[in-house]
Design a protein around this nucleic acid. Structure first.
Length: 656
DNA sequence: TTAGGGTTAG
């Protein structure tokens, strides 16, 4: 009823407004008269007019008025600089800069020096920002901090450290802003002398000496820096030492666990946060981080609780939250629930929503559906991003859609997306999995950029599937240089040698692993039962309940052997008796998690398991058998994709 | 006047 009445008439006719013309109407009339004034002298209220034009994005008109303006105010300069930065108009920023240099009233004004530096930084013009700083006669702390921010934006970590040190010997008192900008500059990835972790530790030590390390913003930034560097223990120390934590610092620590492969700790910390203080209310960023962590461990129960919380607290008005919720469902194996949320988001879908759906179909092996969603996305007028192509090419790879993948890869140029190493890695994976190893190698050789470890890793993975020793050695000759500490590459090559019955080569690799003190990633599987996470590793066989699980698996295997199953002991690298190898296979974490699920869940329930590595062939065979024998649906998410086991068949079609 | 945490892939 109210919506049908024009808003303006409601307001203007209200007695509370009296007979004065409303402010907006006055601005409109000024704008109208100014547009026809041409080169006439600026009106008396020109300062106000320029500010209004800037606020309305009419920069050309505002810029045209500036030269004739006898006395620009500080506010006018500020409006022009902010608008120039917002519109990406470097020429306007430079014109304002020139005008300001000639202005005896404001040329030394530190407020405007700050704004100039900020604008140049936002426009990507670091040399100009640096010049303004160097020439600023009065360098207030704001001017210094603006320079540090500019250096952070431009990824100049070493220079930021040098400037912080300048502040020290010049006696300029640093403040908390100096540290937050300085730290952000430190974790920049581009050319630098010192590694990022050394720079962060240096600024951290500096902050401790000046008494700023526990300041809420500084400490939160420190947590985030250590999170990005993967040094979780340092982030934990900073978080533990804070006297005063708020929702942002908690979220930063939760995010630190989530992005460093400790999703279970992220969920636990979220619970601690909720229990620690009733005034501490999670916000949308907290929710997104925890949803991400739920997906990381397949904690569907927790994810559903969060879904209810989102609806209760009104977070479903935010697309970012819905995107994260949708991704959580799909990454927890519930593709349909994810699709329903995508449908529900409706016209508010952004590129992330589309990418999530494409990757969701991809990770579940629905390649054609992923391509269809890609086409729909293009049809509704959205531009596919770098990630869209990674998602859709990955989907083709999982489904073995070689021709479709090639076509999409070639179409990238039509969308102005330049193929990156990630896209080549997808293509090598696609060709390699499909057995087209020569073509995969040709593609690598044709690359115009340096092949990344992911590209060689994809080739190595394909060699493992197809037992190609020569190309595996070629891939490893690069991988051992590029990532010498990655034990996984040594293990994969050893696996390929073992299957080729090259035991001597296997032993050489094992010696190398030992010599360099490289540790294999322990196989680990998770299962959530009654909203509690249970994890299993293949090395933990001292736990009494594990004996029960071993026994149950043993019974299934005995039954399978009657039907002709032969345990795939080829993947056990130890030079031991066959019987012992079989015993090792029985203890694989994924089998233990399946057995635990069978014992602890109801007969109709879907068993959902997550594994931190690729599912091995033997576990795959055994799980197929168990799904048929027990008439249970088992969904396993490995490091690459989903496997839906039902009635003795896996959704991957044994292609993974 | 300035600042801190999040989403999609591999």
């Amino acid at each position: 009823m109210f919506a049908s009445a024009p808003a303006s008439s409601l307001h203007l006719s209200h007695p509370a407004f009296g007979t004065r013309r409303p402010r907006l109407a006055r601005c409109r009339s000024s704008l109208a008269s100014s547009s026809s004034s041409g080169a006439a002298p600026p009106p008396a209220n020109a300062n106000h007019l320029i500010q209004t034009l800037c606020a309305n994005g009419r920069l050309a008109r505002a810029a045209a008025l500036l030269p004739g303006l006898p006395a620009p105010t500080q506010r006018t300069y500020e409006s022009l600089l902010l608008a120039a930065a917002r519109a990406g108009d470097a020429a306007l920023a430079a014109a304002v800069h020139r005008r300001l240099e000639a202005d005896p009233v404001f040329r030394s004004d530190p407020f405007l020096s700050t704004r100039l530096i900020e604008s140049y930084a936002a426009l990507g013009a670091l040399p100009a920002a640096r010049q303004v700083f160097d020439e600023a006669p009065e360098k207030s702390i704001f001017v210094w901090n603006a320079l540090l921010k500019a250096l952070a934006l431009a990824d100049h970590g070493d220079e930021a450290i040098a400037r912080l040190s300048d502040m020290g010997w010049l006696g300029v008192p640093v403040d908390s802003y100096s540290y937050t900008h300085g730290l952000k500059a430190c974790i920049a990835v581009s050319a630098s002398h010192a590694p990022a972790s050394a720079r962060v530790r240096e600024v951290h030590a500096h902050a401790i000496r000046r008494g700023y390390a526990l300041h809420t913003h500084v400490a939160t930034t420190l947590i985030d820096c250590y999170a990005k560097l993967g040094i979780v223990s340092y982030a934990e120390s900073v978080f533990a030492a804070m006297p005063e934590r708020n929702v942002v610092s908690w979220s930063a620590m939760i995010g630190c666990y989530a992005k460093n492969e400790r999703p279970a700790d992220a969920i636990e910390l979220f619970k601690d946060m909720m229990a620690s203080d009733p005034d501490l209310v999670p916000n949308s960023i907290t929710i997104v981080s925890v949803l991400n962590a739920c997906a990381g461990v397949n904690a569907l129960g927790h994810g559903k609780l969060l879904h209810a919380y989102i609806l209760r607290r009104g977070f479903h008005s935010l697309v970012s939250v819905l995107n994260a919720l949708m991704a959580m469902y799909m990454r927890c194996g519930c593709l349909e629930d994810g699709r329903n949320i995508f449908n529900w988001i409706g016209h508010r879908r952004d590129v992330v929503s589309w990418n999530s759906l494409i990757s969701g179909y991809g990770m579940h092996g629905f390649g054609h559906e992923a391509i269809q969603v890609f086409e729909e996305m293009v049809q509704v007028g959205l531009s596919p991003s770098i990630i869209t192509f990674i998602s859709v090419l990955g989907a083709c790879s999982h489904a073995g859609l070689v021709d479709e993948g090639k076509e999409l890869f070639e179409s990238m140029v039509d969308y102005s997306v330049k193929p990156r190493a990630e896209h080549y890695a997808c293509m090598v994976d696609l060709l390699g999995r499909a057995g087209q190893l020569d073509e995969a190698v040709e593609l690598i050789e044709s690359m115009h950029i340096e092949p990344s470890p992911q590209v060689w890793g994809a080739l190595l993975g394909a060699c493992r599937i197809h037992g190609h020793v020569e190309y595996a050695e070629m891939a490893c000759s690069h991988l051992f240089d590029l990532e010498p500490r990655n034990a996984g590459n040594y293990v994969l090559l050893a696996d390929i040698y073992a299957r080729a019955k090259l035991q001597n080569q296997v032993d050489v690799l094992k010696d190398l692993l030992e010599e360099h003190a490289l540790e294999k990633v322990t196989g680990c599987s998770w299962i959530e039962v009654k909203k509690k996470l249970h994890s299993f590793t293949s090395v933990d066989n001292k736990n009494p309940p594990v004996e029960q699980l071993h026994a149950l698996i043993g019974e299934f295997v005995a039954e399978m052997k009657n039907e002709g199953y032969v345990p795939d002991t080829g993947i056990v690298h130890y030079d031991i008796e066959e019987e012992e190898k079989e015993r090792i296979l029985l203890g694989h974490s994924e089998k233990l998690a399946v057995a635990f699920g069978l014992i602890n869940t109801g007969s109709g329930e879907v068993i959902r398991i997550t594994k931190n590595l690729r599912l091995c062939e033997d576990c795959h065979s055994v799980t197929k058998f168990i799904s048929k024998f027990t008439e249970r649906e088992i969904v396993v998410k490995d490091v690459n994709r989903f496997h839906h086991f039902r009635d003795g068949i896996c959704s991957c079609g044994d292609y993974w």
